[in-house]
Design a protein around this nucleic acid. Sequence first.
DNA 1: GATACGTACCTTTTT
DNA 2: GGTACGTATC
Length: 716
Amino acid sequence: MSQQTLFEFADTTNNCISEEVEQELADKQRQKDLELKKKQEKEKSSVRKKGLLKRILEKDINTEELLTDLNTAQTDAVKHKDGPMLVLAGAGSGKTRTVTRRIAYLIYEHGVNPYSILAVTFTNKAAAEMRERVESILGESLKGMWISTFHSACLRILRMYIDRVGYENDFVIYDVDDTEKVIKQSMKALGIDKEKYKPRAIKSEISMAKAEQMDPAYYETVCEGDFEEKVAFVYKDYQKRLKANNALDFDDLIFLTAKLLDEDEEVLKRLQSKFKYIMIDEYQDTNFAQHNFAMQLSRAHKNLFVVGDDDQSIYEWRGAEIENIIEFEQNFPDDDVKIIDMITNYRSSDNILEVANSIICKNSYRKKVEFLQGILGPGEPVYLVEAYDEKKEAEFVARTVVELTYAEGVKASDIVVFYRTHSQSRVLEETFIKNAIPYKVFKGTSFYERMEIKDVLAYLKFVANPRDSVSLERIINLPRRGIGKKAFEKICIEAQRMNICAGELILRINQLPRITLPKALHRKIIDFGKLINEFSKFAEENTVYNLIMKILTDIDYYEYLRKTFEENYAERQENVKELLSTIADFEKSDALDDEGRTLKEFLSYLTLLTDMDKSDDEYMERVSLMTLHSSKGLEFDTVFLTGMEEGLFPTFSAFDDFKKLEEERRLAYVGVTRAKRQLFISYATQRMRFGKTLNLKSSRFVREIPVELLKMMIAR
DNA sequence: GATACGTACCTTTTT
DNA sequence: GGTACGTATC
């Protein structure tokens, strides 16, 4: 679209287009700024590095400072240098502080090169926090040090070496949505009835197999029963399809890295000699492949420092193995494994801790014998609230929130409401709206799963990787260009006949001989191919940001949104704009090294990002609503633990399974230990579930708490 | 290819 | 009670 037509649009239609123009004009300036900033940063970091080295050599830094305000257990952990160590860090025991100080201590006191340190966490948020805190202690930007999530660490390793396990280095990552589509394709091709076998169940079984590092061939030999047999077929075909699309799923990132370390001695040696000090956070949540990753990398030097809390293991249902932490020392039969118990809790009042301890002591499979010890004194009583039904419960929460925020001056953002399942948020939300209480629901990965975001990303993905047939299918008729489902099928069949992938057929249709497709379709494909080829060419010389701007304009995406979603198109447009600002941030951030800021890297980065990683300011002055699973690692002044009913929490499905029941109990423990000052535990005697009203009694977890620790209330 | 209705389902989800 | 998906119909 030419400049002129753009301006014409701007004059005659709504202001979104003129904003677009403004953005485009501002963009040139932005790019200049970006280049300037890059230059400055490069200069700065070289100066900084000199400073750091010099200071270390001259012992200009007082390492004793790194030990101030630490208790004995924390000091021991911080000072530890070589050999395996397990730090059992109870809830609120100052784990992050200990880990970050230890990294600083390694560098300053022991002269370890930051380049040799690998620190792994599970969430982007935890990784960012750790990096930030280490950098603030050291006053340096530590670009050479790997502080990242399991997935991004593995991503970086695979980008370098994946060709050694038979893949190509420029792979893309498929998210949950994409992989489910591939599973469905696979089932269809194999003639497996998706009514009888749920694609999601198969996906999760494959996920479990990968967590246990079983490849399709091995899985085939150990699968048992009808369902697993079907999974074995799908697994094999699914991997083939991913490979044909030049794509990996989330689990592959870990699975293939572990496999690489197992099978390629040369790569293993190289990585072992790079990562001389390895730290893993939340070790109770590692699965076999992750555990193996850690063990392999540290096998030569044994400098493996793991932190975790078996009492907070809540992801066994996803393949995490609590044994990894409980039986940690058995991995090192010939070594002295040091174990540190951090049981002093700096977060919660004694009343809250007593409740927490009384819950967790009912579990039998535990590493620790001791319980959390507080330092803050008894504090407020813990309330147990009985409500007639879920509505009354929600009203109680709302009323109390209003009281706390108005009368007691508690900030809304310091209040959280926990529940076992997302479905419970509905009543709470309705009640909060009625009472004009600002709130924010935390839900898995909602933002990047929004349709409009996935549309835009699908264009990018296909441009980056023409073999990505999942993305192709999404965009080929978006906006409508007369290539529907049937037409796409024809294309796929034709491509298969010619032994190429659909993307290649589309992009190279002019050079392909003997193609037999209907004339009209042929024409349309040529047009579409031209469009994509133009994008690819553009991508080579422009930033991702500009590429998206071009795509949005060329396909007239905002117009498409307006036509398709009359009521809420503005919101969807907002989402796209938010994506654009994320990209702008990405381009100037140091999330990746300089060379890695390509389209593919950007896509990987986005795929590995979740809603939870978005900036905090969105949650300012709002009450948080989230599942107990999402709560791990967080803390709040006031906690409402709702829906504590037998059958809901613990869920019915855990009743007959000892291990599951203990995991549920740990979940309750995690919830309680999030509270700093005030804790309200509540249950309803009656609750609507699946359209039926159930009569429920309070959760066994509640009844296990000695009555004298609770102040009973009835919510009317 | 869009719409309208019927029916099956219904944990938790760091990436 | 709500939804998400599949099929019947135009």
